[in-house]
């Protein structure tokens, strides 16, 4: 079951920048995901989430920096064998039947890693017949076929670009349930992008916030929540060991999200623990991470 040491990062971005012509899309992005992590890549639309994911499978090249995926450099070798990527539009041949899609996937994934029986059983579990045409499936069913094909590669790393966008709540839960069951069984690592935090907060254990072309926040969700406090009141004051990330004032009422520099935050600490959404929103609204230090 183990191909890698549990301590080796499965995915690592090291000072990665990306320019499109004169436009700088990403600047100096660094983070790493160990084995078995389920990470949310969160940022507003246009923050560069898709570019970041595409670079991990060699569909785009970093302008500077390096990406390490399961010990390979996708800029040099293309999509590493142990990685599956599902783009947001879930590209499938609309005129194919599901069984033809499965056959195509087998051909497109040579080298013994393809597990067609597994993909077929995931599709059967979803109540989708192999004789159905892709174009006749609902958005939720198409997403489930795309995920089944991605998991049929038995990946060590699964990259999902906005997997839940435009899906109903039942399809969202079924798709995340399927992905998380695979994580439980195989220790696969997942990085999924989303611009809606509530969709993914129970599913993920790691958070990467992308904004202003940079990684604004990165870490285990439990640790990040424990390392921040929310102060609320007419005049919020902060202690010496805290840094204000974001402060919003409405009338005489101020709410501030602060970073607590003396973890673990004990029960005696003032303020309250933020929700994941409060944490993300505060970082996305902060001017920039460096300005926040001075605020």
């Amino acid at each position: 079951m183990n191909e890698y040491e549990a301590t080796d990062p499965v995915l690592r971005y090291d000072a990665v920048s990306k320019d499109f012509g004169r436009r700088e899309a990403l600047r100096d992005c660094s983070f790493a995901l160990p084995r078995g992590r389920v990470a949310a890549l969160v940022g507003v639309n246009g923050a560069g989430k898709t570019t970041l994911l595409r670079m991990a499978v060699g569909l785009a090249r970093p302008s500077a920096g390096r990406i390490d995926v399961l010990g390979e450099d996708p800029a040099a070798t293309g999509t590493p064998a142990g990685v599956s990527y599902v783009a947001q539009d879930k590209p499938l041949y609309r005129r194919f039947q599901v069984r033809e899609m499965l056959r195509a996937a087998a051909v497109l994934n040579p080298g013994g890693r393809w597990d067609g029986a597994h993909a077929a059983s995931l599709i059967a579990d979803a109540g989708i017949g192999v004789g159905q045409r892709i174009g006749e499936l609902s958005a939720g069913q198409r997403a489930r076929v795309a995920i089944a094909l991605a998991l049929g590669r038995r990946p060590g790393l699964l990259l999902l670009d906005e997997p839940l966008a435009e899906l109903d709540p039942l399809a969202r839960r079924e798709i995340m349930g399927t992905v998380l069951a695979a994580v439980t069984e195989t220790g696969m690592t997942v990085l999924l992008s989303s611009h809606v935090v509530t969709d993914i907060e129970d599913a993920c254990d790691h958070l990467v916030v992308l904004g202003d072309r940079r990684v604004l926040l990165d870490g285990g969700i439990d640790e990040l929540l424990a390392g921040h406090r929310i102060h609320s009141g007419p005049a919020t004051s902060t202690a010496d060991n805290e840094t204000v990330v974001h402060r919003s004032t409405r009338g005489r009422h101020t709410v501030a999200l602060v970073r607590d520099h003396t973890p673990p935050a004990g029960p005696e600490a003032s303020g309250s623990t933020p929700t994941l959404e409060e944490l993300v929103v505060a970082y996305l609204h902060a001017p920039t991470s460096s300005d926040a230090e001075a605020a």
Binding site: R172, E174, T178, L180, D202, A203
Partner: peptide
Amino acid sequence: TARAVVEAIAINPNT
């Protein structure tokens, strides 16, 4: 099993 719970309610296995 952790797998059954995770699959049914879509929460992280660590939870």
